[in-house]
C-alpha cells in the first residue's frame, strides 16, 4: 500500500498547479481595485494585465473545480477521507498541538496526527468557501442567492479574499514543513515509503 495512492498524487499536483494559477491571477485582479491598503508585487502575479489575469482565472477555475470534485468524490467513495481524517477529537487536537509546539510530534508517513487532520479538513472547507464566494462574485445576478448568502457582491469579494488568504497561509506552513521534513516529499511524487524510522517534526 503506497503512502499516497496514485489518484491522490495526481489530484495533489493538478491542484497545486491550478491553485497557483488561481492565486497569482487573482492577485493581479485584486490589484486592479484593492480591498485593503496594499497591492501584490507584479512579479508574483499571472496574466501580465487585467484581461490576461481574468482569462487565466476563468480558465484555471475549470481545472481547480473539476479536479476538486473528482478528489472529493474519490475521497468520500474510497474511504480515503475517513481513514486519513478521522477520528478527530478535541482532546487529541490539544495533545498533538502541545506536542507539535514542543517539536515532539512524530511524523509518520501515511498517518496524520490530530493537528494535521484538523488543518487538512479546515483547508478543504476553505477551498469550498473560496469556490462558493468566487461563484458569488462571478454570477451575482444569475446566482443571486449565493451572493445574498455572503451579503452581496461587494462583501463576497472580502470573503473570497479571506478564503484565499487562509489557503495561502496553509500552503506556506505546508511548504515550510516539507522543507523541515524533506522525506515527506518523495511519497507525494512516487507514492513509496522512504525510510521507515520516525523523525520529530
Amino acid at each position: 500500500m503506497p503512502v499516497h495512492p496514485l489518484p491522490i498524487r495526481v489530484f495533489h499536483w493538478l491542484n497545486a498547479f491550478a491553485m497557483t494559477c488561481m492565486a497569482t491571477s487573482g492577485w493581479a485582479i485584486y490589484n486592479a481595485s484593492p480591498l485593503f491598503g496594499f497591492t501584490f508585487p507584479a512579479w508574483a502575479t499571472l496574466g501580465g494585465w487585467l484581461g490576461g489575469a481574468v482569462a487565466w482565472h476563468f480558465a484555471a477555475m475549470w481545472l481547480l473545480a473539476g479536479n476538486g470534485l473528482f478528489y472529493l468524490a474519490y475521497g468520500l467513495a474510497s474511504g480515503h477521507f475517513r481513514r486519513r481524517f478521522l477520528p478527530l477529537s478535541p482532546s487529541g487536537i490539544m495533545t498533538d498541538l502541545l506536542a507539535a509546539l514542543k517539536f515532539r510530534l512524530p511524523h509518520e508517513a501515511g498517518t496524520y496526527n490530530a493537528v494535521q487532520r484538523l488543518l487538512y479538513i479546515l483547508v478543504l472547507l476553505l477551498g469550498v468557501l473560496a469556490v462558493a464566494s468566487g461563484l458569488a462574485i462571478w454570477k451575482p445576478v444569475q446566482l443571486w442567492w449565493l451572493s445574498a448568502a455572503f451579503g452581496d457582491f461587494a462583501t463576497a469579494r472580502y470573503v473570497h479574499f479571506l478564503a484565499m488568504a487562509g489557503i495561502v497561509g496553509f500552503v506556506a506552513v505546508h511548504l515550510i514543513l516539507v522543507v523541515l521534513v524533506p522525506r515527506s516529499l518523495l511519497p507525494m511524487l512516487t507514492g513509496r515509503h522512504s525510510s521507515s524510522h520516525e523523525v520529530s517534526s
Partner: peptide, 14 residues
C-alpha cells in the same frame, strides 16, 4: 517547475 510556471506569467493574450 515553479520557475516554468513563472514563465507562463508572460502569457497575456497579446
Amino acid at each position: 517547475s515553479l520557475g516554468a510556471l513563472g514563465m507562463l506569467a508572460g502569457c497575456d493574450l497579446q
